[in-house]
Design a protein around this nucleic acid. Structure first.
Length: 334
DNA sequence: AATCATGATTTGAA
DNA sequence: TTCAAATCATGATT
């Protein structure tokens, strides 16, 4: 306390500075600021602060800012885009088909997630830029009485944005989670298999058995069937794939079905104009006409017919024998 | 709960 | 890519 007037004034000045530091921008006592910047001791104080700052080595090491390029964040982003949450608005792109009728439900829920996600993302971005702006002007303001380099401001901004992006990661993470749950619940058709409607299988079987000699529907035919059955084209393809192989595996049993559908068709044809041939009802003839696999008849080699895959030449001789047998006995057991 | 039926997926060949 | 074949996983039946 020995006769120095300066400390007094200086401490007063410091107090003022501290006060400003504590205050936020929204006080508009520009007068005080003005007074501060004009204060005779300001320059001295400023220099002292600079010196102190240098001594404490608070200044930033420049350029060492590694950008980790967060692989996890990239993973999340990729997944969100792949799942149709983040990317361009999915219009008619049928994602993974092969699912029952609740596909629309899934899409609707996915879209809901999408909307919420984008909403939140925007919110975060807005908040981030607002806050950044705020800090920027605050620091700029304080640089009147405190040594603050541009670099430091930028660094501060960088830190803030980092923090905000952390929040974004969280958002993305929870969105991913939601999508995964939704997906496992709705889209994993394998886990939630639904049998086709009776009417749908009826249509498919009708086609199959009336094209037994070549049960490979063209793309157009598949589309048509899909429309009729209210299922996807892939499902039609699956169905025919399964049907062909399973028919082959148990011809004896399938024969009943074949006859049934043949009879049905014949009946239908009779109603329409009697032009359809009633071959399906004649036990003797049915072997050659109904049987899709001409090669199954003994002593015949149909390989020259170039009828692609659906030719049973080398398939399961026992079954063939059984089938032959069943033609005569009309009764056999696997 | 076994077992069968059936739609979907995987694998490998052409 | 499409297909056959094997396999998986769930629904329906018994």
């Amino acid at each position: 306390m020995v006769g120095t007037t300066t400390p007094n004034t200086l401490s007063e000045l410091l107090a003022e500075v501290m006060k400003i530091n504590e205050q936020t921008l929204d006080d508009n006592d520009n007068q005080k600021k003005q007074a501060l910047s004009c204060h005779p001791m300001r320059q001295a104080l400023f220099e002292v602060l600079v010196e102190t700052k240098e001594k404490t080595a608070l200044s930033i090491r420049s350029g060492v800012d590694e950008t980790p390029d967060d692989p996890q964040l990239m993973r999340l982003d990729n997944m969100l885009v792949a799942e149709g949450v983040a990317g361009p608005d999915k219009g008619g792109s049928l994602g993974s088909e092969a699912s029952g009728g609740d596909q629309a439900d899934y899409r609707q829920k996915l879209h809901q997630i999408r909307v919420v996600y984008n909403e939140e993302l925007r919110k975060y971005e807005d908040a981030c830029s607002e806050f950044t702006q705020h800090v920027r002007s605050l620091l700029k303001d304080q640089s009147i009485v405190r040594p603050i380099q541009m670099k430091e401001i930028e660094r501060m901004v960088y830190i803030i944005q980092k923090k905000f992006s952390g929040i974004q990661v969280q958002l993305k993470q929870s969105t991913c989670e939601a999508v995964m749950i939704l997906r496992s619940r709705f889209l994993d058709a394998r886990r939630k298999r639904r049998n086709f409607s009776k009417q749908a299988t009826e249509v498919l079987n009708e086609y199959f058995y009336s094209h037994l000699s070549n049960p490979y529907p063209s793309e157009e035919a598949k589309e048509d069937l899909a429309r009729q059955c209210n299922i996807t084209v892939s499902q039609v393809s699956n169905w025919f794939g399964n049907k062909r192989i399973r028919y082959k595996k148990n011809i004896a049993k399938a024969q009943e079905e074949a006859n049934m559908y043949a009879a049905k068709k014949a009946a239908h044809g009779a109603l329409g104009g009697m032009s359809a041939n009633p071959y399906g009802l004649l036990p003797g003839a049915s072997a050659s006409l109904l049987n899709p696999y001409p090669a199954m008849l003994p002593g015949q080699d149909l390989s020259h017919m170039a009828m692609p895959q659906f030719d049973l030449s080398a398939y399961n001789p026992q079954l063939m024998a059984q089938y032959q047998n069943s033609m005569e006995n009309a009764e056999q057991k696997p």
